[in-house]
Design a protein around this nucleic acid. Structure first.
Length: 557
RNA sequence: GUGCCCGUAGCUCAGCUGGAUAGAGUAUUUGACUACGAAUCAAAGGGUCGCAGGUUCGAAUCCUGCCGGGCACGCCA
């Protein structure tokens, strides 16, 4: 548990004790303990921690909140040794001042834990599976995929740091209509490249990357599939092309710092009979019926507006049916929490997937879907709409070439998934201080050069007098460092990795302020040692948060 | 028409399980390098939190309605 959390809990216990004592003495009335909070106030003038408990008891007791706060504080006993001051303020807040001694404990802790600093066992090893990107393997990765990759990978890092056991998974959509369409497109390109005048399918994949793929295939097998029966020829081209596309996707994601534990094939669900089995299971529960030659799932029983088709009248399973089988498979593998990161254009799919999970006997809330609003690409101030069909989109690979992995990952995670992301290519291309990632990285590089310039012999932390760190900037920096483990837990439980980019920026900012007002390599040896410890703790924390974001922590820039 | 997301400083966005004077970056203006990296710091101005009601001791945050923008409503995936 972090020092911050333990202080909060300590205060909560004291508050409860005071409440019960006041109740026993007949000064306060409550049937059950109020659900109060102990928080770090936004304004540091409001103390180290504050509670709203008095306001919550106001109504039941027919007393003003400040009056209740007075009663509560009078019942605090034997706290003088660690509580410097209690104050009633504002509308009835109770503010607690703990002094600074407790804060200094965090510095040796950071140095000790080093790359583990910030990690906790909050998740208790709960098994979580995160499925993200899952791009169609028929083309290249676009900005939406890139956002999903940065978001998903960072979320996984955060969850792992918070003590969850995380599995990263990519669902390969290698079945269904778009694969057939893919096959037709490949075949047309194959024939065209070998000098045959064939019409390219209108709904086909027009991207130039497909031509490259087919050229590669021709380089390998030549024209020997010209004479092969069309179904077999398409099948061959599909397998070959999928292989290449997937390997490229893997390569691009790896360049982006994203590595998966599992690549899960949709086709395997068809081949293994898993889909048929899932449908049968739903049938046995009486949730399936036939209409107009198709098989329908009664999703209306789970709050949907209409029922959904599982098996089309041509006998083929829908994407929905395959996805139900896939998600059932996830739960069968023992994941306690299943998280999907989808584009907002899939939002209609969320409720019915949850409904289907409920139908199969799983708790719908164990499936959590993060919807990302779409990425809009700006070029020259104009919105460039991405289109797979036209092939006119910027790929992840190109983005990394242009703006670099660090900037791209930081930018994608910086915004809440709910927010539309305008990615200004021109701006991102300019490597200036406009880019917040440089600001954070600069702090790290700066610390590193201080440590390089120092000729200090290492000393044990117990020999360092941390109480010398009493400047406002020093206390603020320590406080922010102390918040890191709680920051990670907060980002993990709410699935909000974007908080970490803000945290990184704040931490860097506090360091820069400190740097400008406090000289580290001062002649005062005791102060110098204390500050070197502080700076090193800041370095470790900055590096760790950047690591979670998948961003490099450079020693110089 | 129905559903989901968004609307906060000139611009890009945080803050949303209700809490104290609504924050940051950027842009603008003004200061700070003969000491550890000026890719930095310090300071100023900039707001009907889309609008209108409601709940509450207290609302940017919750509820209802409306306005504006995006997305989705297929036996596609």
């Amino acid at each position: 548990m972090s020092i911050l959390t333990s202080k909060k809990e300590q205060l909560s216990l004291e508050i409860v004790k005071a409440l019960r004592q006041a109740q026993a003495e007949g000064q306060l009335n409550f049937t059950e303990l109020p659900d109060f909070t102990v928080e770090v106030p936004r304004e540091k003038e409001h103390g180290d921690f504050a509670t709203n408990v008095a306001m919550l008891l106001s109504k039941e007791n027919h007393k003003a909140p400040r009056e209740i706060a007075q009663i509560i504080t009078e019942h605090f006993v034997n706290v003088q040794d660690w509580l410097e001051k209690i104050e009633i303020a504002g509308a009835g807040f109770i503010n607690f001042y703990l002094g600074t001694a407790w804060l200094y404990q965090v510095l040796p802790q950071v140095i000790n834990e080093d790359e583990r600093y910030g990690c906790s066992n909050f998740g208790g090893g709960q098994r979580v599976q995160v499925e993200f990107v899952s791009a169609n393997p028929t083309g290249l990765l676009h900005m939406g995929n890139a956002r999903g990759a940065a978001l998903g990978d960072t979320l996984c890092n955060v969850l792992a740091a918070a003590g969850y056991e995380v599995t990263r998974e990519f669902y390969i959509n290698d079945a269904g209509n778009q694969i057939e369409n893919f096959g037709k497109s490949l075949e047309a390109r194959y024939l065209q490249l070998l000098g045959h005048d064939v019409v390219f399918p209108e709904e086909g994949y027009h991207g130039a990357d497909l031509i490259e793929t087919v050229k590669n295939i021709i380089a390998e097998v030549g024209d020997k599939y010209l004479g092969v029966e069309a179904t077999l020829r398409r099948e061959f081209l599909i397998q070959k092309a999928l292989q290449e596309k997937l390997s490229n996707i893997k390569k691009d994601l790896a360049r982006f710092g994203v590595e998966y534990d599992v690549w899960f094939s949709e086709q395997s669900l068809h081949d293994s009979g898993a889909i048929a089995q899932t449908i049968q299971e739903l049938q046995q529960k009486g949730l399936v019926y036939e209409k107009e030659g198709a098989l329908w799932l009664k999703t209306t029983e789970f709050g949907e507006e209409k029922d959904e088709v599982l098996l089309r009248s041509n006998g083929l399973a829908t994407y929905f049916a395959a996805d139900i089988a896939y998600h059932q498979n996830k739960f069968k593998r023992g994941f306690e929490k299943v998280i999907n990161i989808w584009g907002a254009d899939h939002h209609g799919h969320v409720a019915r997937m949850k409904g289907a999970m409920q139908a199969l006997g799983y708790a719908p809330e164990d499936l959590h879907v993060i919807l990302m609003q779409l990425v809009r690409l700006l070029r020259g101030g104009e919105i460039a709409r991405m289109s797979k069909r036209s092939g006119q989109y910027i790929t992840l690979s190109e983005l990394i070439d242009e703006v670099g992995r660090d900037a791209a990952r930081f930018f994608f995670v910086m915004r809440s998934p709910d927010s539309h992301l305008d990615f200004d290519l021109d701006l991102a291309k300019t490597e200036t201080a406009d880019n917040p990632v440089y600001y954070v990285q600069y702090a790290h590089a700066r610390i590193n050069s201080i440590l390089l310039a120092s000729t200090e012999e290492p000393v044990a932390s117990r020999e360092v007098d941390f109480t010398l760190l009493k400047e406002t900037e020093e206390i603020a920096l320590i406080r922010k460092i102390a918040e890191f483990p709680d920051e990670i837990v907060g980002a993990a439980v709410n699935y909000e990795p974007h908080h970490l980019t803000h945290y990184a920026h704040e931490l860097a900012s506090l360091f820069h302020s400190f740097y400008n007002s406090c000289r580290v390599l001062t002649d005062d040896a005791a102060l110098r040692q204390a500050r070197l410890f502080l700076v090193d703790a800041a370095r470790i924390t900055l590096r760790n948060v950047l690591l979670l974001l998948g961003v490099n922590a450079p020693e110089k820039m």
